[in-house]
Simulated scan of single mutants.
Amino acid sequence: MHMKTSAILAAVAAVLASAASAQAQTPPAAPPVNHGPAIAGVCIVSLDGAISSSTVGKYVQTRLQQIAQQVQTELSAEQTAIQNEAKTLDAQKATLDQGAFDQKNATLQVRAAALQRKAQLRERELQATQQKALGRVGQELEPVIRSSYQQAKCTVLIQRDAVVLANPAMDITTSVITGLNAKITQFAFDRERLDQAAPAPAAAAPAPAQPARRP
């Protein structure tokens, strides 16, 4: 049995991966650009850049990686135990009668299937954890963006991802990062537990049949 725990770890870095992915090779420096004058009232912000560069964003990234590592350790331990028992059972095949061998093998198959389901559940939990943590950051970020927008006397605010080039004087991302760092640096959160969801309510009993009326 082969567990793809890499798929679980990949879910952790969906939005905040930009801060950790600049490892492989340093890209060549871009040639300098002579910008035109800044347009009054037009501002630009990088939301991903503000999150990944902020103190709370880096904290969330680190915490998500810790939780993902805990999940990987849990699944790897169970996987190793099942693999070791499978090897032991295979070595005992010549000395066990067929019925006993089949029963133990069936038990291992059940455990392996349960582990696969647990891995899928943990992946969904990591995704839910990431969404909830980033949602909290987004709640803290929204008023900071409005404050920076007003301080810069912006008339319109454009997401930097939608712009190819722009005068850096119109970029308020640094101001947003400073405001977010002053507001929050970390908050406690743990892995979401989807297996502890409340069971669905039982279906209501059908109403008793009404007696037929006489004509």
Rank of each mutant, 00 (worst) to 15 (best):
E192W: 00
A202Y: 02
K183A: 06
S147G: 08
A77R: 05
D97R: 00
A182Q: 06
A40L: 12
V176H: 00
D48S: 10
C154G: 01
E74K: 12
N181W: 03
M1P: 11
P27E: 03
Q98C: 12
N84A: 14
T129Q: 00
R213C: 07
D48W: 02
Q69V: 15
A182N: 08
V33Y: 05
A119I: 07
K104N: 11
R63F: 07
Q83G: 03
Q139C: 11
L121P: 04
Q65F: 09
S54E: 02
K183T: 13
R124H: 11
A100G: 08
S6R: 04
E142C: 08
L180C: 05
P201W: 01
P215L: 13
N167M: 04
Q186P: 10
A197P: 04
S52W: 02
A22T: 13
T80N: 14
Q196R: 09
S46I: 10
Q23Y: 10
L9G: 04
M170W: 01
F187I: 13
L47K: 11
V144R: 01
E192Q: 06
C43Q: 00
T73E: 12
D161S: 14
A19W: 05
A68K: 01
G99M: 15
D161Q: 13
T174N: 06
Q131F: 02
Q65I: 15
K183G: 03
P27D: 03
Q79Y: 09
D48A: 12
L121K: 06
S147C: 08
I177K: 00
E74D: 15
L165F: 10
G138F: 03
E85G: 03
A40F: 08
Y149F: 15
E140P: 05
Q98A: 15
L64H: 01
Q98E: 14
A200P: 05
Q139Y: 06
Q72P: 05
I177N: 00
Q70T: 15
A166T: 13
E85S: 09
A24N: 10
A68F: 04
Q25Y: 12
A166M: 11
A19Q: 06
Q103T: 15
C154V: 08
I184A: 02
T107F: 07
T73W: 04
S21D: 09
K4L: 15
V137G: 01
E123Y: 04
T185R: 02
